Amino acid sequence: MKKKINMELKNRAPEEVTELVLDNCLCVNGEIEGLNDTFKELEFLSMANVELSSLARLPSLNKLRKLELSDNIISGGLEVLAEKCPNLTYLNLSGNKIKDLSTVEALQNLKNLKSLDLFNCEITNLEDYRESIFELLQQITYLDGFDQEDNEAPDSEEEEEEDEDGDEDEEDEEEDEAGPPAGYEEEEEDEDEDEAGSEVGEGEEEVGLSYLMKEEIQADAADEEDDDDYVDEGEEEEEEEEEGLRGEKRKRDAEDDVEDDDD
């Protein structure tokens, strides 16, 4: 067990450790070894299947909340727990040699104890076992993983996940209250710019079409003016020719008159 403790420390000081798992390492003479009061910050301790028979050498661990002692050969001496670990909330004694209620009675002094596991102990064969334990230890909520109404105890990992999910939900709500996420306004501005650009493009197209139509109208007007000029010139030429013909006719008439006079 000492060797296992040194491995679990990982170059840390005992007072820096909050969790310690010593499962499956055999202890000497059924007693705890290598643990002392320097592990004062320890909150979780697991010594499952280490052939532990006595808790007499358990150090004072005032901050210990969870203690795993399953699959050992403990048959009594549980009064040490209230003295050394007064703040325990979870205790697993399943698979030990606990046989009667008088042994469990010592746990009454663990005022903060909420969950107790005695599964696979001989005491579970007693008549009205569950009712008797709940009556004896009125501070506990769960026995062997279930409450008095047979509701299963929540898993500690699930509780942690729920807490994390709750924190995430709170963060999401805070973000929603604070306003839209970063970049939302920029996207709106980009959309506005695109709309403005499309409007400008449409305006430019309209102006261009108007300009082209105006040019066509002006060109048509110019063509009409050219046609008018051409018609005027043709009429003047015809008038000049007619005047010339009339002049020649008058000249011939005059000559005829002179000839008539001579006769």
Results as ranks from 00 to 15, higher is better:
residue 1 M to G: 08
residue 1 M to N: 06
residue 3 K to G: 02
residue 3 K to V: 11
residue 6 N to Y: 11
residue 10 K to L: 07
residue 12 R to K: 13
residue 12 R to E: 00
residue 15 E to W: 11
residue 17 V to C: 00
residue 17 V to K: 04
residue 18 T to N: 06
residue 20 L to Y: 05
residue 23 D to R: 09
residue 26 L to G: 08
residue 27 C to T: 14
residue 30 G to W: 05
residue 31 E to Q: 12
residue 37 D to P: 02
residue 37 D to T: 04
residue 38 T to E: 13
residue 38 T to F: 01
residue 39 F to W: 03
residue 43 E to M: 00
residue 43 E to Q: 12
residue 43 E to F: 02
residue 44 F to H: 09
residue 45 L to Y: 06
residue 49 N to F: 13
residue 51 E to Q: 15
residue 53 S to Y: 02
residue 55 L to P: 02
residue 55 L to M: 03
residue 60 S to Q: 10
residue 61 L to N: 07
residue 61 L to G: 02
residue 63 K to W: 07
residue 63 K to G: 02
residue 64 L to I: 04
residue 67 L to H: 03
residue 68 E to V: 12
residue 69 L to C: 07
residue 69 L to T: 08
residue 71 D to T: 10
residue 72 N to C: 07
residue 74 I to P: 03
residue 76 G to S: 14
residue 76 G to A: 08
residue 83 E to L: 12
residue 83 E to T: 13
residue 85 C to N: 01
residue 89 T to H: 00
residue 89 T to V: 06
residue 90 Y to M: 08
residue 91 L to T: 04
residue 94 S to C: 01
residue 94 S to N: 11
residue 97 K to P: 05
residue 98 I to D: 03
residue 104 V to F: 07
residue 104 V to W: 00
residue 105 E to M: 10
residue 107 L to N: 08
residue 107 L to P: 02
residue 108 Q to H: 03
residue 109 N to Q: 14
residue 110 L to V: 03
residue 112 N to I: 03
residue 113 L to R: 06
residue 114 K to G: 07
residue 116 L to E: 02
residue 118 L to G: 00
residue 123 I to E: 05
residue 128 D to C: 12
residue 130 R to W: 05
residue 130 R to Y: 01
residue 130 R to T: 02
residue 131 E to K: 13
residue 133 I to E: 05
residue 133 I to H: 03
residue 134 F to G: 01
residue 135 E to S: 15
residue 136 L to N: 06
residue 138 Q to E: 12
residue 139 Q to W: 06
residue 142 Y to T: 05
residue 143 L to A: 00
residue 145 G to D: 05
residue 146 F to I: 09
residue 148 Q to S: 15
residue 148 Q to R: 14
residue 149 E to D: 14
residue 150 D to Q: 15
residue 150 D to W: 11
residue 153 A to S: 14
residue 155 D to W: 03
residue 166 G to E: 13
residue 168 E to T: 04
residue 172 D to V: 04
residue 172 D to S: 09
residue 175 E to Y: 06
residue 176 D to L: 14
residue 176 D to S: 12
residue 176 D to Q: 10
residue 176 D to G: 08
residue 177 E to F: 11
residue 178 A to L: 08
residue 184 Y to W: 13
residue 185 E to G: 09
residue 187 E to D: 14
residue 187 E to G: 09
residue 188 E to H: 05
residue 188 E to T: 00
residue 191 E to G: 00
residue 196 A to V: 06
residue 197 G to K: 11
residue 197 G to Y: 05
residue 199 E to P: 01
residue 200 V to I: 12
residue 201 G to Q: 15
residue 206 E to M: 08
residue 208 G to E: 15
residue 210 S to K: 13
residue 215 E to M: 09
residue 217 I to K: 13
residue 219 A to M: 07
residue 220 D to K: 11
residue 227 D to G: 10
residue 233 E to I: 07
residue 233 E to S: 13
residue 234 G to T: 11
residue 234 G to R: 12
residue 237 E to K: 10
residue 239 E to T: 01
residue 239 E to W: 08
residue 240 E to P: 05
residue 242 E to H: 03
residue 246 R to Q: 12
residue 246 R to Y: 04
residue 247 G to I: 01
residue 249 K to C: 08
residue 250 R to Y: 09
residue 250 R to K: 15
residue 252 R to P: 03
residue 252 R to H: 11
residue 255 E to M: 15
residue 256 D to C: 09
residue 257 D to F: 08
residue 259 E to T: 12
residue 260 D to P: 00
residue 262 D to V: 15
